[in-house]
């Protein structure tokens, strides 16, 4: 039943053309424009071609907003008057929430993977193992969907939910030092390296792309795993209260 529901959820996601435009077309356009600016240069910090670093950061940065799929579908299906129809089915509502989570995670990850393939073929970005990247994308995407699911379950106001999603995405940008350099202190250095999901996924990505930075990748993976476990636990706790 879960697979069947997820299948239809996936079709709904495929027809969300606005989402495709914002989460696929826009990042590819940004990669193209910034790629033109950086040219064939090497990123001095990471020691990889600048276009590779740009593609990696932009693709993963936009993944942070993929959780909007979960937020939107949860709201429209389970927190609107439509919920009574779904509640009247011989199908526990948390199954529906789970189908949204699974489909949105896979869909968002596949969007990211499509961009990975595109940048590999068009810009010759060296991604390393595609399988490892796909696994990381699925994992990272699920984490982001869980964050947005928690927002949907924990916040009543739609507007506040949207704002919190933006704070999560843009806050991760800021903490990762994408927009500006954070002060050179121990705390900020830690936050920039391990204190946000974007940096954590970047650390793992760098290992996949270069085979270097193994320790950072390991720590980052451990933190991401712990965060996921905490998010799953919190989602179950709030979900039981709100979807009972």
């Amino acid at each position: 039943m879960l697979l069947r529901a997820s299948n239809y959820m996936f079709r709904r996601l495929l027809r969300g053309y606005l989402g495709l435009a914002i989460l696929v077309v826009l990042p590819l356009a940004l990669i193209s424009v910034i790629g033109l600016v950086v040219g064939d240069g090497i990123d001095p910090k990471l020691g990889i071609p600048a276009i590779d670093g740009v593609a990696m950061i932009i693709i993963f940065a936009f993944q942070l907003f993929g959780g909007n799929y979960t937020l939107d579908f949860l709201r429209s299906d389970l927190f609107s008057p439509r919920k009574w129809r779904l509640y009247s089915l011989p199908y526990p509502p948390f199954y529906h929430a789970l189908s949204i989570l699974i489909s949105s995670s896979l869909f968002s990850a596949l969007q990211g993977f499509a961009m990975v393939l595109y940048t590999h073929w068009v810009y010759r970005v060296r991604w390393g193992s595609f399988l490892s990247i796909l696994v990381l994308l699925v994992f990272f995407s699920a984490l982001n969907q869980l964050v947005y699911m928690l927002i949907a379950l924990g916040v009543k106001s739609d507007k506040l939910g949207e704002r919190l999603g933006e704070v999560y995405g843009l806050g991760s940008f800021a903490l990762a030092g994408i927009w500006f350099q954070l002060p050179n202190t121990t705390v900020f250095n830690f936050l920039t390296k391990y204190g946000n999901p974007l940096s954590l996924s970047r650390n793992v990505m760098l290992y996949i792309m270069t085979g270097r930075y193994g320790n950072e990748a390991l720590y980052s993976l451990a933190i991401l795993l712990l965060a996921s476990v905490a998010l799953v636990w919190a989602s179950i706790y709030f979900g039981r209260r709100k979807l009972a």
Binding site: Y8, R15, P81, R82, R85, L86
Partner: peptide
């Protein structure tokens, strides 16, 4: 239901 509860997508 009173609300149309079909999926528009």
């Amino acid at each position: 239901t009173q609300e149309v509860s079909v999926f528009h997508d």
